[in-house]
C-alpha cells in the first residue's frame, strides 16, 4: 500500500516540475520587458515606475542567469506563491479557488454518469456476446469514439437544447447547467468503458473459475454475484485510471464549449492572453487533480481487489 502512494507523490512532484519548467520557458519567451509585465501585474500599471521595476527585476531574479532565475521560480512555486494574474490583477490562488469547485463538480458528475451508463450496458452485452445488444453497442461505441468531445457536445446542444429545448445550453449556477457538459464527457467515457466492461465480462464468464462456479452447483445469478461481479469490476476500475487523461483533456475543451467557469476555461483564456501566472496556476491545479483522481482509482482498486492488498 505504501508503494502506490509514493508513486503518486512522485507523480505530483513531476507535474509541478514540468509545469514549472514549461511556464518558466514561456515567461522567458515573452516579448517586451518581462519585469515590466510582471511588475505591472503585481503592483498595477499606474504605480509602476523605473524604481519599482528595478526592484521587481531583482526580486524575480530576472537580472540573473537563467539557471538562478529558474531556481527562484521554483522557490516561489514551493512557497505556493503563484503570483498575480496579468489580466484580472487578482492573486492567482484566489482565482483558482473560485474555478476549482466548478471543474471538480463537472469532472465528478461526468465520471459518475459514465460509470452509470457504460459498465452496466457493457456487462449486459458481454453476457451474450454476438447478440443484438452487443452488436448495437459496438457500432455505437465505435461511432462515438470517432467523435471529438466538442462534437459530442455540439450534437447534444443541438439535439437537447435547441431542437427540444429541454436543457440550458450554457451557463452556470443552476443544477440543470451541469447536465449537458457532464453528459458530453460521460458519453465519451462510457463509449470506451462499456467496451472494457464487455470484454471483461466475456473473459470472466468464459474463465475456468466461472465454469467451476457453475459445476459446483451454483445457480447462474449466484455465480455471477459471487464470482463474476468483482472480477469484472477490477479491470473496469483499473481502466478508469487510463480514462482520466481523457476526462482532464475533456474538461478543457468542454468547459470552453459550454462557457463553464472552471479551470480548463481559465487555462485556455490565460493561454490566449499569455497570462503566465494564470497558465502556471491552472495547469498545475489540473495536473494535480489528475494525480489525485488517479490516487482515488488506486484506492478503489485496492478495495475491490484483495490481490493488491495482499502483495
Amino acid at each position: 500500500m505504501i508503494r502506490p502512494i509514493l508513486h503518486r507523490v512522485a507523480q505530483a512532484v513531476l507535474v509541478a516540475l514540468m509545469v514549472g519548467v514549461l511556464t518558466f520557458a514561456l515567461m522567458r519567451s515573452l516579448p517586451g520587458d518581462m519585469a515590466w509585465r510582471v511588475a505591472a501585474g503585481r503592483y498595477g500599471y499606474d504605480i509602476t515606475d523605473a524604481a519599482v521595476m528595478e526592484q521587481v527585476r531583482h526580486s524575480l531574479a530576472l537580472d540573473q542567469p537563467a539557471a538562478l532565475a529558474l531556481l527562484s521560480w521554483f522557490g516561489d512555486l514551493l512557497r505556493l506563491d503563484l503570483g498575480v494574474s496579468l489580466i484580472s490583477e487578482l492573486p492567482v490562488v484566489d482565482e483558482i479557488a473560485h474555478q476549482l469547485g466548478a471543474s471538480v463538480t463537472l469532472a465528478l458528475t461526468a465520471l459518475l454518469l459514465s460509470v452509470l451508463i457504460g459498465p452496466p450496458l457493457g456487462v449486459l452485452a458481454g453476457l451474450r456476446p454476438g447478440g443484438g445488444l452487443d452488436r448495437a453497442l459496438f457500432a455505437l461505441s465505435i461511432t462515438l469514439r470517432a467523435l471529438p468531445q466538442f462534437v459530442i457536445g455540439l450534437l447534444l446542444i443541438y439535439g437537447l437544447a435547441i431542437v427540444f429545448g429541454l436543457l440550458p445550453a450554457s451557463g452556470h449556477g443552476e443544477a440543470g447547467h451541469v447536465v449537458l457538459p457532464a453528459l458530453t464527457l460521460a458519453i465519451g467515457l462510457a463509449a470506451v468503458s462499456s467496451r472494457v466492461a464487455r470484454d471483461a465480462t466475456v473473459a470472466v464468464t468464459s474463465s475456468g473459475y466461472y465454469r467451476f462456479g457453475e459445476t459446483k452447483g451454483l445457480r447462474p445469478l449466484e455465480n455471477f454475484l459471487r464470482h463474476g461481479l468483482r472480477n469484472i469490476a477490477v479491470p473496469i476500475v483499473t481502466y478508469l485510471g487510463v480514462q482520466l487523461v481523457y476526462l482532464i483533456e475533456g474538461v478543457v475543451v468542454v468547459e470552453t464549449l459550454f462557457a463553464w467557469p472552471g479551470i480548463g476555461h481559465a487555462l485556455v483564456h490565460a493561454i490566449l492572453a499569455r497570462d503566465v501566472p494564470m497558465i502556471q496556476g491552472t495547469a498545475l491545479v489540473m495536473g494535480l487533480m489528475f494525480v489525485l483522481l488517479n490516487a482515488g482509482v488506486d484506492v478503489v482498486c485496492g478495495g475491490l481487489d484483495p490481490r493488491r492488498r495482499a502483495s
Binding site: G208, R211, F212, K216, R226, H227, R230, P306, R307
Partner: peptide, 21 residues
C-alpha cells in the same frame, strides 16, 4: 452439477476465483 456429480477442473489454480479467499 454439485449435487449428483462433482466435476474437478483440469487446472485447479485456474479454477479458483483469483479474487476470493
Amino acid at each position: 452439477w454439485g449435487r449428483a456429480i462433482a466435476i474437478l477442473p483440469q487446472e485447479p489454480w485456474l479454477a479458483l476465483d483469483p479474487t476470493a479467499r
